[in-house]
Computed example of a mutant assay.
Amino acid sequence: MASSRDRQRKLARAKLDRQMARRAASARRKRQVRAGVGAAVALVLIVLGSVWALGGFDREPKPQAAPDICAWTPQDASANSNLKDVGTPATSGLPTSGTRPMTITTNQGAPVTVELDLANSPCAGASFAYLAGKSFFDNTKCHEITTEGAVHCGDPSGTGQGGPTYTFVNENVPAAAPTPTPSASATPDQPPAYPAGTVAMFGNPPGANGSQFLIFFKDFNPPTPSYPIIGKVTAGLDVIKKIGSLETVDNGTGSKVKPKTDVVVQSLTVGEVASTAPTAPPTGSPAPSGSASPSASPVVG
């Protein structure tokens, strides 16, 4: 039989083994916890790094690019020697409301002023402002007096084939007048699509607008309008009518439309954008009801 001392030794040995096993298990749990915490921290750092790289911690959102308002279609100057390369206007940040004054000085009299309509023809307005800033129109000839009753200008080559090395699409073509029917009741005459003083683009081919434009010196009302309106004459229509009355000669193609006397655009400038605020009624206009002053002097006609 084992002595009591041997039994005590065995019991102490067994107790020590149990303690060592518990310590080993505890150490394994600690290592597993530390490994789990390390993995979690690494994952968090990866996520935070990805968010930072994508701009998630930027104080202000990155500004988005302004949307394009106009598109300019390139034209090959090597295929058409009449084109003049002066670059292209901006495509975004362009005014789309209000008006811009355009002044055309010719060798035929006082300057002609035009109001460009930016609300209905923003790209035409942007193009004219850009080309005017490049002196594109200066010292060019109005090469045609059309049979439709308009002065045709804006081609530096004077051939009807010239312009810048870009084009843009139509913006403001008038609608065709409704066709009357026998059963329709009588209605007042429709206003002309192009009243005298209208300024319109001339595309060559139609719909591909560059720099050529028409200034109508008499009313024109075609069955199917095709010229996009870009503005109207505000002063100097008498000069345009004078040009329209000039004698014409053959332009080399069999058409007797070229002014016999040179009509030279000495300069064309475009001013700053004007607001769309309502203007005061002209002097002599009837005052609104209830606002007339008893002491107001009558307007002498």
Rank of each mutant, 00 (worst) to 15 (best):
G271Y: 15
C153A: 13
T279Q: 13
P191I: 04
A150C: 08
G98D: 03
N120D: 09
R28D: 12
K258Q: 13
T261D: 01
G49W: 05
P63A: 01
W72E: 11
G38V: 04
L214K: 06
Q75I: 06
V114N: 11
V299G: 08
V86R: 05
F136Q: 03
A25Y: 09
V47I: 14
L214T: 00
I46G: 09
V44K: 07
Q266L: 12
G36H: 10
P182T: 07
A124S: 14
A124M: 03
R31Y: 14
R34G: 00
G162L: 10
W72I: 08
V239Y: 00
P180R: 11
C70M: 05
A186E: 08
V47Q: 02
L45T: 12
E60T: 14
R22P: 03
L45Y: 05
K241M: 06
N80E: 15
L118M: 07
P288F: 04
K134G: 04
S275Q: 00
K232V: 08
T106H: 01
W52I: 12
S245R: 04
S255F: 14
P294D: 14
A66D: 05
P89Y: 05
G55T: 05
T167S: 15
S81D: 15
G149P: 00
P288I: 00
T269C: 04
K134W: 03
V51M: 08
S157H: 03
D68W: 06
N170W: 03
A176E: 00
T159G: 01
E144V: 06
S81L: 07
G98N: 12
G56T: 02
T276I: 04
T167M: 05
L11W: 08
L268K: 10
V173E: 15
V264M: 02
V151P: 00
R7V: 13
L16M: 11
R18N: 13
P156K: 11
V299R: 09
P95I: 12
A119E: 10
F216V: 03
F57K: 09
V199W: 01
E272Q: 13
P278W: 04
D85L: 01
D68C: 02
Q32A: 09
D238K: 05
M102G: 03
A129P: 06
N251S: 09
G56H: 01
Q190P: 05
